[in-house]
Every structure is written in structure tokens, then in C-alpha cells.
């Protein structure tokens, strides 16, 4: 049983890595498109490339293993909800953006927490406490009947050998490398071919919670 599972775990990434060899990355030249805000279309695709450019290769390949999916979802109320702040913050926690972004902007090792820091996928939003709540107590005000859907399953390629699709919405999560590469990445979803920057060359957004639309040729 162990052997079999091991195989399953490795086949996907290897094949994914093979099929993007020698891929050329082309970014639209802004010459003739002065009116288009490059940062603002295609799920802010430009951001992915920029952040990739800015990330040193050694960092991309680094591997710490101390952040896993269980912990990732423990901080959330449903897939895609803003995570709570899992560590103490000053009582004044007052939106000095450099406080949060000094660590969560670029990532890296935090001696204070003994961990690699997760990187925010949306550093342009600087009013961090607008969405991310502290945890002062775990006690509830009253019981809740809250339930939500299960988190997206991993490794669900459409074909046995095809790269897995992106199972979640890209809203506020346009920057793939912040969660999927580097030592602060979530273990289960870390990519092993981080030397390739054009993620969406192979990985197509196919939100798991949306119905699969089949192509039907429009009638004449």
C-alpha cells in the first residue's frame, strides 16, 4: 500500500515538469496598449510574473516543511476565507502596514517564531486588519451550526498525465508563488518545479466548486 501511494505522489509532478520544458514566456509589449492597465486584467497576471522575477532562485527552491494544509485550513472558516492571525500582535495593532508587510511582504525566516513566514498574495492591500482578525480567545459566544464545503481536493488532473488545474478562485490570490513555492509554502501544495515562472502555461483555472461546462457548438 505504501509503495503504491508513493508512486501516486510522484508521478504527477514529474510529468508536469516534463511538459513545460523549453516553454517561452511572452508578455504583451505595452507599446501599443498604453490605455490598458496591465496590472488589472487576466487576474492581474502581470503580478505573477513580477513577483516571480523578484524572487531569488534559492528561495524558490527552499523547503522547510513546517506549514501544512491542515494548519492552513485551521485558520479559515471556509475555502477562501481570510485566515485569522495565528500569532500574537501588539494590542495597538494599528495598521502600520510595515509591521505586517515587513515579514509577510517578502517572507523569509522569522527567528521570533522559529518558522518561515508565509507571503501575502496581495501585498497591495495594506489595511491588513480590515480582513484578518486576531485570536484573543477560542471560546465561542454561542454554539454555531456553521458548515461549509470541503476544501478543494489536490492532484485532480483531467487526464492521468496532465498537470492539475488550479482548483480555487484567483480573486485576491493571483500570486501563485506566495503559497506554492518557497520555504513558507504549504507542504502539500508546494511545486517542485519552481524554476518555471509561467504557472498558467500548464495549470488552467478550473474552480472545483463550479460546474464543468462542456463545449457545445452554437447552432447556426
Amino acid at each position: 500500500m505504501m509503495k503504491q501511494s508513493e508512486k501516486r505522489g510522484w508521478v504527477g509532478p514529474c510529468i508536469a515538469a516534463c511538459c513545460i520544458l523549453g516553454a517561452a514566456v511572452t508578455i504583451g509589449s505595452p507599446k501599443h496598449s498604453a490605455a490598458i492597465d496591465l496590472g488589472n486584467f487576466d487576474h492581474q497576471g502581470q503580478k505573477v510574473f513580477r513577483s516571480y522575477e523578484a524572487t531569488p532562485e534559492t528561495y524558490l527552491a527552499a523547503d522547510s516543511g513546517d506549514r501544512n494544509l491542515a494548519r492552513f485550513y485551521e485558520l479559515r472558516q471556509y475555502p477562501g476565507s481570510p485566515p485569522r492571525i495565528p500569532h500574537g500582535v501588539e494590542a495597538s495593532f494599528s495598521g502600520d502596514e510595515s509591521n505586517c508587510l515587513s515579514c509577510h511582504g517578502k517572507g523569509g525566516y522569522s527567528p521570533e517564531f522559529g518558522k518561515f513566514v508565509p507571503v501575502t498574495p496581495h501585498p497591495e492591500n495594506t489595511l491588513c486588519y480590515q480582513c484578518h482578525a486576531r485570536v484573543i480567545t477560542e471560546k465561542a459566544f454561542g454554539e454555531s451550526d456553521w458548515q461549509s464545503i470541503r476544501p478543494p481536493r489536490l492532484g485532480r488532473s483531467f487526464l492521468s498525465s496532465s498537470p492539475p488545474p488550479i482548483p480555487h478562485s484567483l480573486q485576491l490570490r493571483e500570486n501563485c508563488i506566495s503559497c506554492h513555492t518557497g520555504p513558507g509554502a504549504v507542504v502539500e501544495i508546494r511545486v517542485e518545479h519552481s524554476s518555471r515562472g509561467n504557472c498558467r502555461q500548464c495549470h488552467v483555472p478550473a474552480v472545483q466548486t463550479a460546474p464543468v461546462n462542456e463545449f457545445v457548438r452554437p447552432g447556426p
Binding site: N68, L69, Q147, R150, P211
Partner: peptide, 28 residues
Amino acid sequence: SSAIATAGALFPGISFGSWPQLANNSGL
């Protein structure tokens, strides 16, 4: 963490979500 990480490596897609999950949910 180590157990969960191992489980994750062995079974892609395994989930330990912290919220109560809807039973028999369509997933859509």
C-alpha cells in the same frame, strides 16, 4: 504536523479541514 505532512505526501488530496463539512455535499 509531521504526521499530517506524511499523510499529505502519501494521499494527495487528503483533507483535515477545521470546519464542520457538509455531508453528502455536491461540492458545487
